[in-house]
Simulated scan of single mutants.
Amino acid sequence: MGLLRSDRVTQRIFDGHNDVLLRLWQRDRTGARFLSEGTDGHLDLPRARRGGLAGGLFATFVPDARPAAEGPAQRADGSLAPPSLAALDHERALAVTLSQLAIAFRVERASAGAVRICRSVADIAAAHAEGRFAMMLHLEGAEAIGPDLDELEILVQAGVRSLGLVWSRPTIFGHGVPFRFPSTPDIGEGLTERGIALVKACNAFGVMVDVSHLNEKGFWDVVAVSDAPIVATHSNAHVICPVSRNLTDAQMDAIRDSEGLAGLNFATFFLREDGRRHAETPLSLMTRHLDHLLEKLGPRGVAFGSDFDGALVPAAIGDAAGLPHLVAAMEQAGYGAELIDAVCYRNWLDVLARTLKADVQHSGTAALPIG
């Protein structure tokens, strides 16, 4: 197959969140669909190349066993009615997670070198220098990990470098914030003792902890216990769109103080003031969120967390090939070249460098603080 390169110069982008592995698990477990251009979903390798997308965090996600249970229903007035979500069965969650990770390795193997699964920032930089697409593995929700955390060590050895403690449902580690609009994120209890142990274990392994789906009490528990940057891979500004999943200004202050980062989520119901799913959402609203995130977090604390293949995104972007339209909107909003490069690419690599530990990156060894 050889290495795929864009025919034109585009802004290089690293993205903090997508659900491609879930889409492949549901439709093509060989992974071949990712390597050729398709018409379904948002992201495959050819569209990534056309859009300047050089890599990103690829999430595993375990859907509820009941069809159509994921995500909120939207009422006529635009408010979100949260679905009834129960905790997942651990055995099933582990099986689905391993299946999706296997798809990632099949993609890498079948790509003939065009895709590289990266375990360190050095791996990402090398992949980009060689024209390869950089894929880093992330768990969206830790249901695959049991109470003794044994699975975490295995998953780290398999290449997982980023972990969301919860999705928007309860686990043995804490409570995900349900989808509600309008609503604050202050819903439910904080981390459990096992959740605190998991944060400490991730710190020891150099695994990035993602707070995007965590409720507010759990967020502050992570702030209190973690010695690593606080990262929300795909969350927006609550002051603009008051959905429970977005970040309050106080949360952004804590992220900034930890030298962490927030990734702009492209999902329209996390962007719009009315909280609606609507493809005709202007890109100016995305730059409005970026403006606020930059004001609170600073130029080193903001990036992209698209949620490609996991949400409805503005029609003006459409899919990964449309990313240059967002870059153009940033230019029109007065963003300079250095800031655009930081938000699009450099900030993710910098926060990963502040989080992933060199000994873990290369040898995979760390002491687990359990008990």
Score class of each variant (00 low, 15 high):
Gly131Gln: 11
Val360Lys: 00
Thr281Ser: 01
Glu273Gln: 11
Arg116Val: 15
Gly78Gln: 07
Arg169Cys: 00
Leu80His: 14
Pro314Thr: 05
Pro178Trp: 05
Gly275Pro: 12
Pro170Phe: 02
Ile13Trp: 06
Leu137Gly: 09
Asn246Glu: 08
Ile255Leu: 07
Gly78Glu: 10
Gly164Met: 12
Arg180Gly: 04
Met135Gln: 14
Leu247Glu: 06
Val156Met: 01
Arg256Cys: 06
Ile145Ala: 08
Leu294Asn: 12
Asp257Tyr: 02
Trp348Asp: 01
Gly364Arg: 06
Val107Arg: 01
Leu85Gln: 10
Ser79Gly: 11
Leu191His: 07
Ala201Glu: 05
Arg23Met: 09
Leu214Val: 06
Leu264Lys: 12
Asp221Val: 06
Arg272Ser: 09
Leu290Trp: 13
Ser99Ala: 15
Ala144Gly: 15
Ala353Gln: 13
Gly31Thr: 06
Ala32Ser: 14
Gly164Cys: 14
Thr171Val: 11
Ala104Asn: 05
Pro83Asp: 09
Arg92Val: 04
Arg109Glu: 15
Arg245Glu: 08
Ala158Lys: 10
Arg33Thr: 12
Ala315Glu: 15
Leu21Glu: 03
Thr171Ala: 06
Leu149Ala: 11
Leu80Arg: 07
Leu137Met: 14
Gly164Asn: 13
Arg33Trp: 02
Ala329Thr: 12
Trp348Tyr: 11
Ser79Trp: 09
Gly31Lys: 01
Val121Gln: 13
Arg106Met: 04
Pro67Cys: 11
Ser226Asn: 10
Ala81Val: 09
Gly159Leu: 09
Ser244Met: 11
Asn265Gly: 09
Asp148Ala: 12
Leu339Ile: 13
Tyr345Glu: 12
Leu43Ala: 05
Leu198Arg: 00
Asp341Phe: 05
Gly31Met: 01
Leu293Lys: 05
Ala32Met: 11
Ala316Val: 03
Gly190Asn: 07
Lys296Leu: 13
Leu98Arg: 15
Pro67Leu: 13
Glu70Gly: 01
Ile240Pro: 06
Pro185Arg: 10
Ala303Leu: 03
Gly174Ala: 04
Asp148Pro: 00
Leu3Gln: 06
Ala224Asp: 13
Pro67Trp: 08
Phe308Arg: 03
Cys118Gly: 11
His175Pro: 00
Ala358Phe: 13
Ile172Met: 14
His278Asp: 15
Gly301Pro: 04
Val207Thr: 09
